[in-house]
Simulated assay, not measured.
Amino acid sequence: MSREVLLVKLALCQGMGIEKKWRLLQYAQHYQRSDLSFQEILQVLGYNRFSETLRQNWQSLTPDEINQRMLGQKYLSYDSPLYPTNLKEIAYPPLVLFYEGRKELLQKRLVAFVGARDATAYGKRVIDFLVPEVVRANYVVVSGLAKGIDSCAHEAAMVCGGYTIGVLGTGVDLCYPSQSRPIYQKMKKEHLLISEYPRGTTPQKHHFPMRNRIIAGLSQGLCVIEAKSRSGSLITAQQALEDGREVFAVPGDVLTGHSAGCHDLIQDGAKCVHSPEDILSELPQF
């Protein structure tokens, strides 16, 4: 078994998280191994107890089974020359990126826009104000294809002739939420959809914070619009800060609470955005 096959096997294996998968990969690399037995896994990870799912998954993923599972799936492994450099800088990058669409967009300059699922008319106007100028500056827009600000950001990029990348918390063959299907179909053909989860993976609650770390890691900067005090967008912003990315926040109405998380970010040092230049002037190669 080659290192490439091990990367894919780890990506396909259910029952352990990305941190443990990386520990196994580093062990295999250190000892120049690529075919680890289940008993070795238990020893390396220090497991006294383990799920039956993990045992069954690992033992069933033979090279033939891996080849069968990967038939028709487009992917970039961590070792691929096209794997995005920015993403390699985060603590535990995806071992494999599954994709549909134009993988070359990963080599472009990327800016993320995230925010409320229940976006107001104000949030949508902000997207329409900021995104076209960012696109004209030759940046690709990254977001999570959720309803609200995410979908508005993807749509605004496409409407003004730019490109956009959607990072999914499911397999790239599934559209979630279903309301995003028209955007999903267009992006699948003309833009790019990526996920660290293989085809057929359904939405699970824990997938979305993991997806958010990819959004943050890919991008040179991240702009938050209409985030409440307890918002997944704030997790993405925190991840971006930890990864050394530029973080921007758009202020909003102080009475409704719709932008309370954005105001907290600004107080904590995120750049307050009131024009596209506030974003572009902080990014490399402006």
Score class of each variant (00 low, 15 high):
residue 261 G to I: 05
residue 10 L to S: 07
residue 150 D to N: 02
residue 263 H to K: 04
residue 217 G to I: 03
residue 176 Y to G: 04
residue 229 S to P: 00
residue 158 M to V: 09
residue 286 F to M: 10
residue 229 S to L: 13
residue 172 V to M: 10
residue 113 F to N: 13
residue 243 D to T: 00
residue 137 A to K: 10
residue 281 S to F: 00
residue 260 A to D: 08
residue 3 R to K: 15
residue 176 Y to D: 08
residue 160 C to G: 03
residue 130 L to P: 03
residue 107 Q to E: 11
residue 50 F to G: 00
residue 207 H to P: 00
residue 261 G to L: 01
residue 261 G to N: 02
residue 74 K to S: 11
residue 57 N to F: 03
residue 156 A to S: 15
residue 189 K to V: 14
residue 279 I to M: 14
residue 85 T to P: 00
residue 245 R to I: 12
residue 72 G to F: 08
residue 270 A to Y: 09
residue 134 V to T: 14
residue 277 E to W: 06
residue 226 E to I: 04
residue 228 K to D: 12
residue 211 R to S: 03
residue 34 S to L: 02
residue 110 L to Q: 06
residue 100 E to Q: 15
residue 222 L to F: 00
residue 166 G to W: 01
residue 107 Q to F: 01
residue 50 F to K: 08
residue 49 R to T: 13
residue 24 L to P: 13
residue 48 N to C: 07
residue 130 L to Q: 10
residue 84 P to R: 09
residue 25 L to E: 12
residue 168 L to V: 02
residue 208 F to S: 01
residue 264 D to C: 06
residue 164 T to S: 15
residue 8 V to F: 00
residue 261 G to Y: 02
residue 92 Y to W: 09
residue 155 E to H: 00
residue 179 Q to I: 09
residue 1 M to P: 08
residue 164 T to Q: 06
residue 144 G to I: 09
residue 31 Y to E: 11
residue 31 Y to N: 02
residue 232 G to H: 08
residue 163 Y to I: 01
residue 216 A to K: 03
residue 195 S to H: 15
residue 230 R to H: 06
residue 31 Y to I: 03
residue 215 I to Y: 01
residue 265 L to V: 04
residue 61 L to K: 07
residue 224 V to Y: 03
residue 140 V to R: 01
residue 38 F to R: 05
residue 280 L to N: 04
residue 224 V to R: 07
residue 192 L to G: 09
residue 207 H to T: 00
residue 39 Q to K: 14
